[in-house]
Nucleic acid binder design. Structure first.
Length: 647
RNA sequence: GCUGGAGUAGCUCAGUCGGUAGAGCAGCUGAUUCGUAAUCAGCAGGUCGCGUGUUCAAGUCACGUCUUCAGCUCCA
């Protein structure tokens, strides 16, 4: 007998080799039916894992993150089984659970059509109805590879071969006629997968490498209850209504023009206003925090980029003007500000007394992104970033890094995005040396310094191998858009290579010359992308301090225009952005239109207001909040603007 | 760049088998002067993304190209 500690510290005795599935059954059939996986001594395990010693077991259901993953992973096997039945020649690659569902990659002659997907989904539902039990078995690596070869699954053979060296047995899962190489964990049977929806079918490269063959990836999601799927689909639909690319155009913040080109949005007056407000705010705060503004050129001769390494490592991403073969001088638009801002440091000899030197710039950059990569305002070819470079001594590095991070967090909090971000420590990939400059020792040192800083600051980060810049590791502050796709909003990077390349030195206290550490950082990221995320965050209803129009005055009849103008002037005197709707329309119509533009405040004025010397205020979310004196409204509005309150 | 969608009025969309393009909203004009989410009537609006081809005839078929959406790769 062994002792197993269950939920709530309850300890029960079981026969040796009992499995989590059997434990669940012993507690109740309801739990047995809903259990998806188990944590044994804190490790995620399959329900069929025999337990051999006293330990802690936590049973995971669909409500647990890892339970969901097992549920979705099993659904991906059902998908594969259905595909095998309908398209016997399909070859199978991988089919994991992801944050929001699952996918499976297939090698097929022609990608699945919408009709194919419908048929596959119908077959999946048949499989679920049949209630097939899943069986797990293990084979020695050699036998495993033989089996996969006999199944004519070249991708699976490749995967199994990589595991073979470890000498561990390789696990498979079998459900009726379908067997798949898989580490698990999985459900006991297909039955609990009551609601399935295949959501998308796209191309995806084998092993994520664009040099490899492109496979057909089918995405889907599943739930134990039909109502949960419905709820999910409604939520998705709601989320897509916030899509900045749609809303931003509807609210007349930006547009694009075919013959201008991809990734080159036109900021319309309202969008340009918001960006202007953000820029002024950022530049002012940076100035207060000891940053010195610079203005550097948008382009340079190729010579500059050869020193920085961009020419060798980033040329595909640059807009190059001229041809090295033919022209005496070749220029390129800048993809990054670094080598330009370094010239400020290099302007004269520097000593430790000049450090830290914090240089910021509202910097327009140009990157020749591949045509399929552009997306609304999130991924564009010309963008303006709150860029900055900070030169410091080794003992200033941690404090200055903290300063940069705190500044970024201050901006995130002010904009209301702080709760939505996650951190990624982006490191180099030692197996992909061509992508990076510097030696292994330099990378180890830079990453070691950065790790120490992050750990000291207790930043909860994920590690991203191969995500570093070509010159150094980064702390990327990540955010997801309405589609769940993650992008970098803010980045803070430690660089000890470019200073050497550019001959940047300072004279230290002891009279010796040293290369400074450089921190590359942005405080709020690039304005286009940040605006995109703000549109999605607020569904276009911006905090008042950022609203392009803050107050809309709605006179009830033409005879109230004069009073409306008077109020407008009073508000404008306080620096507010105000419009009067002086069309001969009914008040309901004017309110509807004002609401649709998401203006924070509407002021309705009519006979009563003139008589009582008041304004009738309507807030965009609360609705009519009644009549008040103009002074009271101004006090309320000014307070909201100055404190940058987010409603 | 790759895979798969899409492109018809400013916007949302309809357009059957290839037979000279249609609605709602927005716009303009007029009437209405109204108290918290759509007043009524009229008018105007289109080289069907662009190009080439097939055809007596192309929004519709074929090819090319541009833009755009999702995903992959890439990335602030």
């Amino acid at each position: 007998m062994i002792k197993i500690e269950l939920k709530g510290g309850v300890v029960k005795e079981f026969e040796e080799n009992i499995t989590p599935a059997e434990i669940a059954k012993s507690i109740g059939m309801g739990l047995y039916k809903s259990v998806c996986a188990a944590l044994i001594d804190g490790k995620v395990c399959d329900l069929r894992t025999p337990i051999t010693e006293d330990t802690k077991v936590q049973l995971l259901t669909f409500d647990d993150e890892e339970g969901k993953k097992a549920f979705w992973h099993t659904t991906s096997h059902i998908l594969a089984q259905a595909v095998k039945r309908l398209f016997p020649s399909a070859k199978f690659a991988i089919g994991p659970a992801i944050d929001n569902g699952f996918y499976y990659d297939f090698d097929v002659d022609t990608p699945f059509s919408a009709e194919d997907i419908e048929k596959i989904e119908a077959e999946m539902k048949n499989i679920v109805k049949s209630g097939i039990e899943l069986e797990r078995f293990e084979l020695e690596p050699k036998k495993a590879i033989e089996l996969l070869e006999s199944m004519e699954e070249p991708y699976k053979v490749e995967l199994a071969s990589e595991h073979a060296d470890k000498g561990e047995p390789i696990s498979f899962y079998k459900q009726a006629e379908f067997t798949d190489l898989c580490a698990g964990p999985h459900l006991m049977s297909v039955s609990p997968v009551k609601a399935i929806k295949l959501t998308n079918c796209t191309g995806a490269y084998w092993r994520g490498d664009s040099k490899n063959h492109q496979l057909c990836r089918v995405y889907g999601i599943s739930f134990p209850k039909a109502s949960m799927l419905e709820e999910y689909l409604v939520m998705q639909e709601e989320a897509l209504k916030r899509d900045h690319n749609k809303l931003g155009r509807e609210l007349e913040l930006f547009t694009t023009v075919d013959y201008i080109g991809q990734g080159l949005p036109i900021m319309l007056p309202k969008g340009a206003r918001i960006i202007q407000l953000l820029q002024r705010f950022v530049e002012d705060v940076e100035q207060k925090n000891g940053w010195q503004l610079t203005k550097t050129p948008f382009m340079a001769k190729s010579d500059l980029y050869k020193i920085s390494g961009h020419w060798g490592h980033y040329q595909d991403g640059m807009f190059v003007l001229g041809d090295e073969e033919k022209d005496e001088e070749v220029y390129a638009l800048r993809p990054m500000t670094c080598p330009f801002q370094y010239q400020v440091f290099l302007n004269r000899g520097r000593s430790y007394r000049d450090l830290p030197m914090r240089l910021n710039e509202t910097s327009t950059l140009f990157r020749n992104e591949a045509s399929g990569e552009m997306h609304g305002l999130i991924r564009v070819r010309q963008f303006t970033i709150s860029e900055g470079h900070l030169m410091c001594t080794p003992d200033q590095l941690e404090g200055e890094f903290r300063h940069c991070l705190e500044l970024a967090i201050y901006f995130l909090k002010t904009l209301g995005l702080y709760e939505d971000v996650s951190y990624r420590f982006s490191q180099w990939d030692p197996d992909d040396r061509e992508k990076y400059i510097g030696t292994e020792e330099q990378w180890d040192e830079a990453q070691g310094v950065m790790k120490r800083i992050l750990d000291n600051l207790e930043i909860p980060y994920k590690i991203g191998i191969g995500e570093a810049a070509f010159y150094g590791p980064k702390l990327d502050i990540q955010i997801k858009n309405v589609f769940g796709k993650e992008d970098t909003l803010i980045t803070i990077q430690v660089d000890q290579m470019l200073a050497e390349r550019f001959g940047m030195e300072y004279v230290d206290k002891d009279g010796t010359k040293k290369n400074p550490y450089i921190i590359h950082r942005t405080s709020i990221g690039c304005y286009e992308r940040t605006l995109a995320l703000l549109i999605e965050k607020y569904a276009g209803a911006f905090p008042m301090w950022l609203a392009p129009i803050q107050v809309k005055i709605l006179p009830i009849a033409d005879r109230h225009f004069e009073y409306a103008e008077k109020i407008k002037n009073a508000l404008e005197e306080k620096g507010m952005r105000v419009e009067v709707d002086d069309r001969s329309e009914k008040i309901g119509y004017k309110i509807r239109e004002a609401q649709l533009t998401k203006v924070p405040y509407m002021i309705v004025v009519g006979d009563k207001d003139i008589e009582n010397n008041t304004v009738s205020v309507r807030e965009r979310k609360e609705g009519d909040i009644g009549a008040m004196s103009l002074e009271d409204f101004i006090a309320r509005a000014v307070e909201e603007i100055e404190t940058k309150v987010i409603k």
